[in-house]
Design a protein around this nucleic acid. Sequence first.
DNA 1: CAATATATTAGAATGATTCTAATGTATTGT
DNA 2: ACAATACATTAGAATCATTCTAATATATTG
Lengths: 140, 140
Amino acid sequence: MAQDRPYSALIDRLKTAGLRPTRQRLALAKVLFCQGNRHLTAEQLHAEAAMERVPVSLATVYNALHRFTGAGLLREVVVEPGRSYFDTNVDDHHHFFHEASGRLEDIPGDRLGLKGVPDAPPGTRVARVDVIIRLSQDEN
Amino acid sequence: MAQDRPYSALIDRLKTAGLRPTRQRLALAKVLFCQGNRHLTAEQLHAEAAMERVPVSLATVYNALHRFTGAGLLREVVVEPGRSYFDTNVDDHHHFFHEASGRLEDIPGDRLGLKGVPDAPPGTRVARVDVIIRLSQDEN
DNA sequence: CAATATATTAGAATGATTCTAATGTATTGT
DNA sequence: ACAATACATTAGAATCATTCTAATATATTG
């Protein structure tokens, strides 16, 4: 996990997705994909890239996030007005959202499911189903 | 439905919720609560109030939406980065979201449910569960 | 290695929302 | 009814995340 030097796996991953493996994208991909499943905002990713001593502009972070998402490497999750999270886990799954901290967390396993899902209205089809379990501090 | 003059029901509703029934709040409450279940953004509500010939500032619209939400008269729904919808239906229910048009729609009935809902992580409790069925145009 | 296509960037622009602080209106108590 | 008080409204400025622009740099192709 998280090998430091040989970026070849990441390079392949980007190339396969049709994305040019630039210095910036590799740095971002490393932060995103070499530490298990993550849920990051653009600002968080920007900050982490800066700490890795790879200066990447915020514009590039946004560009990369959107290209990665379009290529199926990321998934955008919206839980709060005003900011988007990007989830490195693109498998079918759902989320806990910690309202106090703003932290997003994968719900483990595939036990959680839906029943009685209605048909899509005429002329439409289901693109995706999001389930967000919003958590607050338990004051006990 | 949507009686035009006697605001007494609305006045009571606001008073019961601990909200002063001002001219502006009544106008907004009328738009919100006298036309069945609605899903409006702040800008949409502002525009509709303007059409009712009750000038209400945008700041007041935001204030009112947040106070109404805090009082349990509305529920905030977040489906898109950048803007919030306010739902006049505060009962337990879920939504279709039409990605093409940005329209939010209640899922009728109570057939839709969840199974295998996990326990809240230690120290937290479930505040709310949101299910959003995202719809795209069916190109057939 | 030149030509082309695609990325990166700083900074400006945008759009939704929140804040500020001055003014206006409802409520309470007498 | 009315003064005192508490709460609401407002215009406009401020903020924040995000997107755009158009100039420059880098990767890819032939």
